[in-house]
Every structure is written in C-alpha cells, then in structure tokens.
C-alpha cells in the first residue's frame, strides 16, 4: 500500500538532488532561523500528505480534510498556534516526498512512510518516532479453506508493482522454502481488481490496507486475512535532519497524544483535569505546575491545546481508523504498552 511504496530505486537520484541542495543552501542555512520561526512567521504549518491512503488523508462528503495523518498535522498546528486549522496540506507523491521535504516545500511529512534504515540515514531526513505499526499480510478466499501462509505453497500472489511488499514476499517464502508465483500490478486498486477477478489465489499488502481496500471487493464477506504478519511497517512523521528544535517539537506532539491517552486525558475532560487534577505528571504535561512548552519554543498550554482541539491518540485512531470509522481496525500493535501494544511515551518530567 501507500506507505510501502518506497521507490528505493530513486535513492541515487534523490541523493544527487540533496547534495546539490546542501551545496546551494550551505551559505544560507547558518544564518537561517529555523523551521519553527518560519512556521510562526508564515502563520501556518505545511504538512506533506500521501495521495492514496484511505483513513490517513482524505476529504469527507462535506469537503473537510480528515484522517490519521491529517490529525497529526492539526495537532502540530494546535501546539504551535492553539488553532488546529492553521495547517496546510500538500499532497506529495511518494517518490518526490523526501525531495520536497529537504528542499523546504513542506515542514513535515505526515505521509504514512515506513521507517527504514535507508530512509532515516539516506541524507537530509529523519523519522521522529513510530506512531502507527502495521505489517504485511495476505488476503485469500474463504472457499479455499486456507489456515496459514504455509498453505500458500505454490500459490499465485497479487502485489503492487515496485513496492517492498513484493520483496517481503520473496524473503519470507524463500526463508520458509515455499514456492510461489507473483503477479504485479500498477497500484493498489489494479491489484485488488485482479485479485477480485480471480487472477491469483492471494492478495498481499499491509494488513490495514487489506482491511480497508478489501471493503471494495465485490463480496467482502467471502474473503479473509491470514493470521501471519510477515513484515514490520512502523510508520511515523519525517522532518529535515538539519533542524533539531523542530524534530523535538514534532516528536513531543506525537508523544503528548500518547501520554494523554495513558493519563486518561481526552478532548472532553482535559479542561476539567487541568483545574482539578492532583497527578503531578498531568499537571506538568498540561502546563499547570511546570512550563515544558518553553523548551520547545511553545506556550505552556501546548499539550492542553493538542488534547482539547484534536484529541488523544486513542481518539485520533478511533475516529479515523478504528471503531468510529468505516475501516473498523482493531488497535492491535497500536494499543498502549499497558494494553499489550507497542505505543508508549517517555515520562513528561
């Protein structure tokens, strides 16, 4: 799916672009005030979003921009300006996204990119943290009676062209001594159509993507996702690695939403807690007893704005991907560490 569409082949071209960028900008950057100052001067934070990720960035019937990625961008705007609407969304193709970021076209990518070694160390960009954990899985027809990926020996598998999904299948099947035949198609929709028409036995993509795109199959109830997850796909925001202040800010915004869920703070009760809470960490986070915002160049109420105007992690997840959305994904790995998931926030102290 979108996040896995990592055109590694472009790395060479990209590094040339970045090299020329850094050479051209070398003189200017030293005197440059930084991303936060630029954002404040502009009055709006610009986020790069993906073109094709259901639940992550889309417009609803009323024309409002919604989605998991959109909400994190709005959270950054809420932290800086106290107004989530001071956010602007730029759609960038996956192959151009890192170039657009490093050349200053956007301030942050909230783009569903998988955090990989090469992307983190490829020059110019860095991931702040993982905010969404996904993994690659397989969808099959229930009528075939398959119980596990091991049963797919000799199967024909549909995958999207030029994505890591293809490479993951190769790795996994070789490792388990299974034979397979892969058929690739241009884009997720074409892959789904081919699978629906019976051109292959299984369709592979990220689990979340299979669940959402699977809704568009002719009869979704006839299909099931096999239990194995064959890859790690940690997804998170990306910023320029030349601006540590900005990277800290974006990271703290993500952690604030997770911490809020841990501490039981939500958009409905955050004002109440700010007044009455006796929990020292709540008081620090909400800027009642301490001024953590100052270290980020923000108001003391930065986290309170995020929670009140956008919500905690659980609210953001449920609204866009989870129980309160048509996608109805379970929290799974994206539950808090206290609930058996992978999400945690360092202590706010």
């Amino acid at each position: 799916m979108g996040l896995a569409e990592k055109q590694e082949g472009n790395v060479h071209f990209k590094s040339i672009c970045m090299l020329s960028a850094s050479m051209l900008l070398a003189g200017g950057v030293a005197a440059h005030a930084g991303t936060l100052a630029d954002v404040k001067a502009r009055g709006v934070v610009r986020c790069g979003i993906g073109p094709n990720n259901p639940g992550f960035a889309f417009r609803d019937n009323q024309g409002n921009q919604r989605g998991f990625d959109i909400d994190f961008c709005r959270a950054i705007a809420a932290a800086i300006f106290g107004d989530p609407n001071k956010s602007e969304f730029h759609v960038v193709e996956p192959r151009d996204a890192f170039t657009v970021l490093t050349t200053g076209g956007v301030d942050v990518l909230t783009h569903r990119f998988t955090w990989t070694f090469n992307r983190d160390n490829g020059g110019g960009a860095e991931f702040t943290q993982a905010l969404f954990y996904d993994g690659q899985a397989f969808m099959v027809r229930k009528s075939l009676g398959l119980k596990s990926v091991k049963d797919l020996n000799g199967a024909t598998i549909c995958a999207a062209q030029g994505t890591t999904t293809e490479l993951n299948v190769a790795d996994y099947f070789r490792q388990h001594n299974l034979t397979y035949k892969i058929v690739t198609f241009n884009g997720t929709d074409a892959t789904r159509l081919a699978y629906d028409e019976g051109r292959c036995d299984a369709w592979t993509n990220d689990r979340g993507s299979l669940a959402s795109r699977g809704q568009a199959l002719k009869d979704p109830s006839q299909h099931a996702i096999l239990p194995e997850t064959i890859s790690k796909e940690p997804v998170g925001p990306v910023v320029r690695d030349s601006d540590t202040q900005w990277a800290h800010l974006v990271r703290s915004v993500g952690f604030a939403t997770v911490a809020a869920e841990e501490l039981g703070l939500s958009s409905a009760n955050v004002d109440e807690h700010a007044k009455t809470s006796t929990n020292p960490e709540v008081k620090r986070l909400l800027g009642v007893s301490d001024d953590l915002g100052q270290k980020l160049g923000l108001q003391p109420t930065w986290a309170r704005s995020i929670i009140k105007l956008v919500g905690n992690y659980g609210e953001i997840f449920d609204r866009n991907l989870g129980a309160n959305s048509p996608l109805n994904l379970s929290r799974g790995l994206n539950a808090l560490w206290t609930n058996g998931g992978l999400l945690f926030s360092p202590p706010f102290r």
Partner: peptide, 10 residues
C-alpha cells in the same frame, strides 16, 4: 475514492 466511507465496491 479513498474516503473510507465510500469503500463499498467497485
């Protein structure tokens, strides 16, 4: 087309 609300069929 990517509004999850409309992912109901081809």
């Amino acid at each position: 087309l990517i509004d999850p609300d409309w992912l109901i069929g081809d």
